[in-house]
Write a protein that binds this DNA or RNA. Sequence first.
DNA 1: CGCGACGTTGATTTGCCTCAACGATTGTGG
DNA 2: CCACAATCGTTGAGGCAAATCAACGTCGCG
Lengths: 183, 183
Amino acid sequence: MHISLTTEEEAYFASFLQYKNIRRKQFLFQEGDVNKFQAFVIEGCLRSYSIDRSGFEHVLQFAPPGWWIGDMQSIITQQPGTLYIDAIDDTAIILLFKSDLEKIYTAVPKFERFFRILAENALATYQHRLIGNLSLSAKERYENFCRLYPSLIQCLPQKQIAAYIGVTPEFLSKMLNQGTAKK
Amino acid sequence: MHISLTTEEEAYFASFLQYKNIRRKQFLFQEGDVNKFQAFVIEGCLRSYSIDRSGFEHVLQFAPPGWWIGDMQSIITQQPGTLYIDAIDDTAIILLFKSDLEKIYTAVPKFERFFRILAENALATYQHRLIGNLSLSAKERYENFCRLYPSLIQCLPQKQIAAYIGVTPEFLSKMLNQGTAKK
DNA sequence: CGCGACGTTGATTTGCCTCAACGATTGTGG
DNA sequence: CCACAATCGTTGAGGCAAATCAACGTCGCG
């Protein structure tokens, strides 16, 4: 990780963490809620997405083990959020509440560093994805996705991938089946 | 701003800053360079963009006065970047080198906080833009752009806006001229 | 002045969407 | 343990938003 901690600092940090289990399809967060925590995935998989005016889902992020997830906009502003977060599989997570995080920052400034680096990496990732969405075809975005998240392709329903790369499930299906040579 | 500084801290920080002017159309950064600094715009306007395989530009960010800009991916990894950054108008900027920033972080940890918050806000902004690109029509994206950057619409050539919202200049032109009622 | 960037407009094409129907799989309750 | 509903992927016909290509007028600038 990006910082090293003494045993006391670790214990202090750990004292704020809350463990939680979420069942497949259960919601961790819904549009209109104020998001008061970041979630860290230990096992399983979460996803964050928005639902547009026409009822279509658009996936912002998948969070397999080792990933953080939350409605950043809502966490920052403490205003009602616009995203949904739910579980794709049964999932074990750790919650870290914003109010506690503020305390942690004050007590152990090193954590500012940790979460700064985390945010900067995430930022670069989203910039890269945005550029991809502006410049690549659906097929190329799919290939990128496979290259970037090889562990996910196997456990995700195809329509979730479609909602991530920005095409309809029907179109993704056709794309995949005519890339394959036919007899 | 997000932190408050003593006079000494301010002076210490200021001692690292380098002022620079860039002429219209001049490059601050090009694909393949390793980005060693963040730039803060005082006056004028910069833009960061990528050029795809077919030679089309895709704007990642405009930076009017008060904004930071850089190739985040390259700054983090210190590997050659993929973006271009150039000046839309004659522009005055401040450079803050990554190597200096590391020193500043060590000397005055408060700055970790400042740049953490900066990165988190930027992150939320890109997430929002990505969702918009996945769920909105070209017209809606244009309207969002106008709402979000009213100061920019006047000084930007139309084709730059097109390259930001993700349409061709031709299409944006048509869109705008038939939204207007005709006689 | 003349060149190059920009915006405009039209004709045509295309990548992706919409809608609808259908089989396969899953899971759930009786 | 089976019946049924729900979800998912597939396929086809047709439609539309946006891209492509090309031509042209305008303006600012060297």
